[in-house]
Amino acid sequence: MQKENYLGVDVTPYNYEEIITDLRERMKAGQQSTIIAVNPEKVMAAEKNEELRQLINSATYQIADGVGILLASKMKGGKISSRVTGVDMMDRLIRFAAEENHKVFLYGAKEEVVTAAKQKLEEKYPRLVISGYENGYEKDQDKIVKNINASEAELLFVAMGSPKQELWIRENMGKLNVKVFQGVGGSFDVFSGKVQRAPLLFRKLGIEWLYRLLKEPKRFKRQLALPKFLARILTAK
């Protein structure tokens, strides 16, 4: 695939279905794949942090989780036509796993959150097999790796926050038989019902950031990354 690059950070131009199609073939070939969400804030941080930039660019798919990435692509004549959010990518992968009989493992978050997320996902997708889970407070890494392999899971969702979750995946993927890895941040909170997403209209318009800002005004400084990012895109050679 021909990736787009913004301030040194790669972004995959595929939509949800194109990623699923590509993943299906990679799984059949026995290849491992990693998914990382990319937004303007993360790109700006990666511009100053070589390790973070390498971590992002080493992923199989860098999904455009942020309206700023979509705008940057349009400004530069790119091919990214829609956002691919981390939480919706997880939901689409869960549906894929349920429909095509792939086992899933959930790792991260508090015990009550991950168990509630497991229950809600199983209710939503009756054919889904979540063959194992572990909260994010277990310290024995060898035990976690052993349990994931024993579960025979092919898809692993890690909820630790970024970049901690991606660093964990990079460190452990060689020990695991998993085929698809995604760091999902706070997605378990959403699936468990603990955190409510922005209303559908905000999500369709790509302005979830505005809804979160209205709910949490203290996020204002973080949201300044968007205009700074677009300014950098305009002036970048």
Score class of each variant (00 low, 15 high):
L7E: 09
K48P: 09
I233K: 05
M27S: 14
V180M: 04
V114W: 00
Q32V: 06
P126G: 07
V87H: 04
S58D: 14
A109W: 03
R170N: 14
F229P: 00
Y16N: 06
T85H: 03
Y125C: 06
F220W: 13
K237G: 09
I169W: 03
L93Y: 01
D10Q: 15
S162H: 04
S73T: 09
F220A: 12
N177T: 07
L167G: 03
Y6R: 01
I169S: 06
L156R: 07
V87P: 08
P163C: 03
K103N: 11
M90T: 04
I169L: 04
V178P: 03
A225W: 03
K28E: 15
L224T: 10
T21E: 13
V195F: 13
K74F: 04
N147A: 15
K103H: 08
A150Q: 14
L230K: 07
A150I: 06
M1V: 13
H102T: 07
L52V: 01
E51L: 05
K42F: 12
K237M: 00
R24K: 13
L156E: 07
Q2V: 15
A236L: 08
S82K: 15
E154G: 13
E216Q: 13
Q182G: 02
Q62A: 11
A236Q: 14
A64W: 00
E166Q: 12
Y14P: 11
Y6Q: 01
K124Q: 15
A46S: 13
G186N: 01
E134M: 14
A64P: 14
Q223W: 03
K215S: 11
I94E: 06
L128C: 11
I94M: 09
F188A: 11
N57E: 08
E99R: 03
L176K: 04
I233H: 05
K124G: 08
D91N: 12
E51I: 10
R232Y: 11
K28F: 12
F229M: 02
V84A: 03
Q119Y: 13
V178R: 00
K215W: 00
I144Q: 06
T12M: 07
L213R: 02
L55M: 12
